[in-house]
Design a protein around this nucleic acid. Structure first.
Length: 227
DNA sequence: GCCA
DNA sequence: CAGTACG
DNA sequence: TGGCCGCTACTG
């Protein structure tokens, strides 16, 4: 199991504890542990196998050390399961929105039964946020912006992933008779860190069947329209 | 929660 | 000013 | 047992 997996578990634990209004320092401990673990150069599994004492890692004490062993051996964490069952699933997702922390998420849920990004958007559009304590017109608008930004970002993937895919696709299209040029375009060509789609500019002679060949590509799941 |  | 989010 | 980041940055 990867360290990242373990780190994510502690991160989620921190999020839920935070929403529940738990002791901030306890929450921070889980956050610290999560960061420490994901930054760790060696794998936890290797350390355990080598008989190392996990508590020697700074920020990891008895409790978290035990949980790490639990996660490594069972693949699950009892505490997290417990916490999840006590809190609506969508709430941790709300924390990812810029400008929304645990306090506001808690209020939104308790006052407006907001337990998802979708419901949050509806409430904001209806102007129901501005009355809540600690929020005004500004925050309402800011939240709508955050939702927009969030949705724009979630359908995206890392450039490295897109590159492999695009590379295969380009090689495939190269074999099409009549094609003069194939050029990557858009955010992919500009080497952005993440991209939402692959733009490919194909220049070809009259009557070239490049689109036929493209829609016939093996990994095309569905053709919505063409031309 | 972890640490001194 | 106090509360909250954030790096 | 008690402390735990901030001449923060921003909002209401």
């Amino acid at each position: 199991m990867e360290n990242k997996t373990v780190a994510d578990i502690f991160s989620e634990i921190a999020d839920i504890l935070d929403i529940q209004g738990e002791n901030p320092f306890r929450v921070r401990s889980y956050r610290n542990a999560s960061r420490t673990i994901s930054d760790l150069s060696q794998s936890l599994e290797a350390l355990v196998r080598a008989g190392k004492d996990l508590e020697e890692i700074p920020g990891i004490g008895k409790s978290i050390g035990e949980k790490i062993r639990e996660i490594l051996s069972t693949g699950k964490c009892g505490l997290l399961e417990e916490l999840r069952s006590r809190v609506p699933a969508g709430l941790t997702e709300l924390l990812k929105l810029e400008g929304l922390g645990p306090k506001k998420v808690k209020v939104l849920f308790e006052e407006l039964e907001v337990d998802s990004v979708d419901r949050l958007e509806k409430a904001a559009r209806a102007g129901r946020l501005r009355n809540l304590p600690g929020m005004g017109l500004k925050t309402e608008e800011k939240i709508l912006k955050s939702i927009e930004h969030y949705r724009a970002g979630m359908g995206r993937f890392k450039l490295s992933v897109g590159f492999q895919f695009a590379d295969a696709l380009l090689r495939y299209l190269e074999g099409t008779p009549g094609v003069k040029r194939l050029d990557p375009a858009g955010s992919f060509r500009r080497r952005r860190e993440t991209i939402g789609d692959l733009d490919i500019l194909a220049t070809c002679g009259k009557g070239c069947r490049v689109m036929d060949r493209f829609t016939a590509y093996g990994e095309v799941a569905e053709v919505l329209a063409r031309g």
